[in-house]
Amino acid sequence: MKPHTISNDAQLNSNGRLSHLLGLEGLPKNQIEKILDVADDLIDKKGNLQKTKILRDMSVANLFFEPSTRTRNTFEIAGKRTSAKTINVDLANSATKKNETLMDTMHTLKAMQIDMFVIRHKQNGLPHHVAENIKGVSIINAGDGINAHPTQALLDVLTIRQHKKAFDNLSVAIVGDIRHSRVARSGIQAMKTLGTTDIRLIAPETLHYKEETPGLERFDNLDQGIEGADVIISLRLQKERMIAADIPDEQTYFEGFGLTNERLKLAKPDAIVMHPGPVNRGIELSSNVADGPQSVILQQVTNGIAVRMAVMEILAGAF
């Protein structure tokens, strides 16, 4: 599957305001920073999330055509913390199982006066297609195929900004199943826009992008790739998108690309370790790294709620 190119005309209105969040490719820096600033303001000095009433007159439908725990739950919590009426559509028993087309389902939900759709789907570009064909509803992409996962990338860069302040002098190492990762694709786009020039892709050759990656340094050796890094983002092995030949076996993968405390010493002493979850312990990260002092994985989860609240509030026209 090839990534789907997103036109900013599809997600910015004539006044340059965000009307959908479909992807981060080409999204202006000021739009990304606006989302980060709004999200940051929703977290107090103790790390607690605020509540608002900004979406009290709006309804949000969560439409997850792929399994999800963190993303679906944090979108639901984000909707409730902004006072939206949140609906989790039971897709397992929906009319799509009775041969109703997906677009007919979307039109039906719009007729129910839903204001926002949060969509996760295995098809690249599906949220974009919905945005082009369903008018008067804001679409938030919660992950489409291997294409994009914009809110995950935004919560990642928010977490990085909280720890590192600026992006232009950072060395960021992305480790693991890069080829199948929409998280990596959106994260790279966000970090480039924010000024990061040292982005390293570290993976077995079978899990690197097939296409050329100008401006990105590629490694097939973990120790070399993370040396001197400020940020290490370990990716989940996308088993549902991989074929058996992509890695020999999980133990061999861990021996070559699993992050351990010993390997972490190669990065900068104040390097942070990130992961989009769920973590495959003993495969992508050792438990003592996942639970260690340099891990910010749980902070990412909290930031995910703040970012998703911020996106909803901006789409509602509050900022």
Rank of each mutant, 00 (worst) to 15 (best):
P204D: 08
Q299P: 01
V183W: 02
V307I: 15
K80D: 06
G195C: 06
K51S: 05
I272L: 03
K239H: 15
E76K: 08
H4R: 00
A166W: 07
F64R: 01
A290H: 10
T96Y: 00
Q224A: 07
D220V: 02
R200H: 03
I226S: 09
N221H: 08
K239G: 09
T108W: 05
G136W: 01
I35A: 09
I6C: 07
I160C: 05
I247C: 02
V273R: 03
Q50V: 13
L22S: 01
D246G: 03
I160P: 06
E255Y: 10
A229R: 10
A245I: 01
Q238W: 00
E100G: 09
L24S: 07
R281I: 13
I114T: 14
D104E: 10
L18K: 02
K2F: 12
K29L: 11
K2C: 13
D115V: 01
R236W: 01
H4F: 15
T96C: 08
Q162G: 10
V175W: 00
L216A: 10
L207W: 01
R236D: 13
Q11R: 07
F319Y: 14
M191G: 02
L298P: 04
A39I: 10
T193A: 15
A244P: 00
T206C: 15
I119H: 10
K135H: 12
Q113A: 11
M112F: 10
F65S: 07
I232L: 15
N99L: 14
D44V: 07
P214G: 09
T193F: 03
H107E: 15
R120D: 01
H128T: 12
V60L: 09
R120W: 02
D104S: 11
I243T: 13
N93V: 11
G79L: 05
A244Y: 15
I202C: 10
N30P: 00
L154R: 14
A142L: 05
M112Y: 14
A316H: 04
E211K: 08
Q299M: 09
E76C: 02
K53D: 09
A229W: 04
R308A: 07
Q11K: 07
M58S: 14
K45L: 11
V130L: 04
I272M: 05
G79I: 00
G26S: 11
V289D: 07
I199R: 04
T82K: 03
S59A: 12
T71Y: 04
R17A: 12
V289S: 07
N288D: 14
I232H: 04
K80W: 08
K165H: 12
